[in-house]
């Protein structure tokens, strides 16, 4: 745990109170840096990958292989004028992007990064905390849609809230299933319980469900209905210019990264693996899962809203329940 490391290090030459404060400050800075870097790196990977699938090159002009492209985007977005419409709820409008990136920040804080010790702050039930951070987002999506005084935004907000709420239910059932198998809601315990056999063998259906749900919750194509460009322009993000629009990318990509890491932790045994050191196993698995999550975007078109809800309630939720019951029955006997 990185906080403990800093606390102990500062405690060597400072008073406990001061090292408590400085430890938190250091952890905070590291968390912010990680949160800000994820969208820049993943955004670059996303753009390059999509370009290669579509037989293009993607960004090449800015820096080697276009690595500085997203930094240029961020600088540009920060340099835009801060404009707000008339007749909007200014407070709510401005709170939403900050709140969404704060939720992303919380998830970065409490998830282990490839090693039980590489965790910024260890929380006993961090899986549940991550679930809560994900589950709070439809509230803000709805608020964003409502506050902009725009019909597109409102429709997008409704869509977003409905979509995330639908798929969160299946997600919760998956977490319960994993919790039943491992007897804990702590990711480290869950991973350690998979040292012999990965949970994808026990929960194959739930893996598929989780894959679809994580796409739906991260609002990435093909499940990007709340911001479907061709239907609603930018959906609930429509009236956000400048850096407030950039903050949504933080929320989107951090949630994508967290979803990929959770897939690895819950179904593919986390850092467990023979011969090679644990961090290589973890990051290799995460890279593969991220690649799959990203490339799904460029192969499928998006379903309709009613179809999406139908998939969620008619297929994914019952399947999760069935899988949960089977696991429960097996564990009981």
């Amino acid at each position: 745990m990185i906080y403990d490391f800093f606390y102990n290090w500062f405690n060597g030459f400072l008073s406990p109170l001061l090292s408590f404060i400085l430890g938190w400050v250091a952890v905070f800075i590291i968390g912010v840096l990680i949160t800000l870097n994820i969208p820049i790196i993943l955004g670059w990977v996303d753009r390059k990958l999509s370009a290669r699938i579509q037989s293009r090159y993607g960004p090449t002009y800015n820096g080697p292989f276009g690595l500085l492209q997203n930094i240029a985007d961020v600088i540009k977005l920060m340099g835009k004028r801060f404009i707000t419409n008339r007749n909007v709820d200014t407070l709510v409008l401005n709170i939403v992007p900050v709140a969404l990136s704060l939720l992303a920040f919380i998830m970065v804080f409490i998830i282990p990064w490839g090693n039980p010790n590489l965790i910024l702050v260890s929380v006993p039930f961090n899986l549940l905390f991550i679930y809560i951070a994900m589950a709070l987002s439809p509230l803000f999506v709805l608020l964003a849609g409502w506050s902009q005084n725009n019909k597109y935004a409102m429709l997008g907000g409704f869509r977003g809230a409905a979509q995330i709420t639908t798929y969160e239910l299946s997600l919760l059932l998956i977490f319960v299933g994993v919790g039943m198998l491992s007897g804990s809601y702590n990711i480290t315990t869950i991973v350690n319980a998979q040292s012999h056999i990965w949970y994808i063998m026990y929960l194959p259906i739930m893996f598929i469900v989780f894959l679809l749900s994580s796409l739906a919750i991260t609002e990435r194509a093909p499940f990007d209905l709340p911001e479907a460009t061709q239907e609603l322009q930018a959906g609930w993000k429509i009236e956000y210019p400048g850096i407030r629009y950039g903050l949504f990318f933080i929320a989107e990509y951090v949630r994508l990264a967290i979803a990929a890491m959770l897939l690895v932790y819950l179904f593919f045994g986390g850092w467990n693996g023979p011969v090679l050191p644990d961090y290589i196993w973890f990051w290799a698995k995460t890279a593969v899962v991220t690649f799959v999550l990203m490339s799904l975007r460029w192969v499928f078109n998006r379903p309709r809203m009613d179809q999406l809800i139908k998939i969620g309630f008619n297929w994914l939720l019952p399947l999760s329940v069935i899988n949960l019951l089977i696991v429960g029955a097996v564990l009981f006997y």
Binding site: Q54, D73, Q233, A234, K237
Partner: peptide, 23 residues
């Protein structure tokens, strides 16, 4: 913006969103 010329090389990304986000 498509394959042959590829505007994305220079960072000209067709976000296709609302005028608010365009430069």
């Amino acid at each position: 913006g498509a394959t042959k010329v590829d505007a994305d090389r220079t960072g000209t990304l067709f976000v296709g969103d609302s005028p608010r986000q365009a430069d």
